[in-house]
């Protein structure tokens, strides 16, 4: 309830500056204090699936930023005309269309990423973050603010996704973006790195994200009370 009040307040206030303090906060908040993955713990499913390598995670992050940003923008533009009884259907329609756009564009211009992500592109539709932001924010705010909120949440998700992928690929394969990292370092001491296969299994993403949540909350007292 408290959040609803806050959201309405944002709308009532005349927004004259495109990047005022409030707008900046829309972008920075989801990166840390209100991170969809580590604080709200939404969208874990895709985070588990695609983070075994950095490159697909990067593409996934970009795709999710695009979908959250533009679905928020479109839904915010439509918000006064959408009949409230079918608003979720309309939201899904918009999300599904945008995901299809992403899928088509990747297939045409980033074929290798498209291949390695395969079904996970389509599954952006089911990513809780996207619809969550539409319901919680875009339905009650101006288009520009909603767009920024979408970008912010997409970035917050993508940032954690890539961080997880770096950890998992580094220890699971000894590489980052396919570049040998650990073997040359170990080589300095006359040893070779044996990849830890556990890290590339989906289970490892749960350990990694668990550790990340722990570290993040340990470092910032403000997060302890939120949950």
């Amino acid at each position: 309830m408290a959040e609803d009040v806050k959201n309405i307040a944002v709308e009532e206030k005349e927004a004259t500056i495109a990047f005022g303090a409030k707008e900046r906060k829309l972008i920075t908040d989801p990166l840390h204090l209100n991170n969809p993955l580590t604080v709200q713990v939404l969208g874990i499913c895709s985070a588990m699936a695609v983070t075994s390598q950095v490159y697909p995670s990067l593409i996934m992050a970009v795709a999710v930023v695009f979908v959250t940003a533009f679905s928020s923008l479109i839904i915010s533009l439509l918000r006064n005309s959408v009949p409230s009884s079918i608003r979720m259907i309309v939201q899904l329609l918009v999300i599904a269309a945008l995901v299809q756009v992403v899928s088509l564009v990747l297939g045409a211009f980033a074929y290798s990423a498209y291949e390695s992500l395969a079904v996970f592109i389509g599954l952006i539709i089911t990513n809780c973050i996207v619809m969550g932001r539409l319901e919680a924010f875009a339905m009650a705010n101006r288009p520009w603010q909603s767009f920024l909120d979408g970008v912010g949440n997409g970035l917050g998700y993508g940032f954690i996704l890539v961080a997880m992928a770096v950890i998992r690929e580094l220890f699971g394969k000894g590489t980052i973006m396919g570049l040998e990292i650990l073997n040359p370092i170990f080589g300095l001491f006359g040893a070779t790195y044996t990849p830890n296969n556990l890290m590339v299994l989906p289970a490892a993403s749960l350990f990694v994200i668990g550790l990340m949540i722990w570290v993040q909350r340990g470092l910032d007292d403000r997060l302890v009370d939120i949950s």
Binding site: Q100, L104, A108, Y114
Partner: peptide
């Protein structure tokens, strides 16, 4: 979507 598909699918 149909418009986009017509443009992008041949490339895919």
């Amino acid at each position: 979507l149909a418009g986009l598909y017509n443009v992008l699918d041949p490339i895919y």
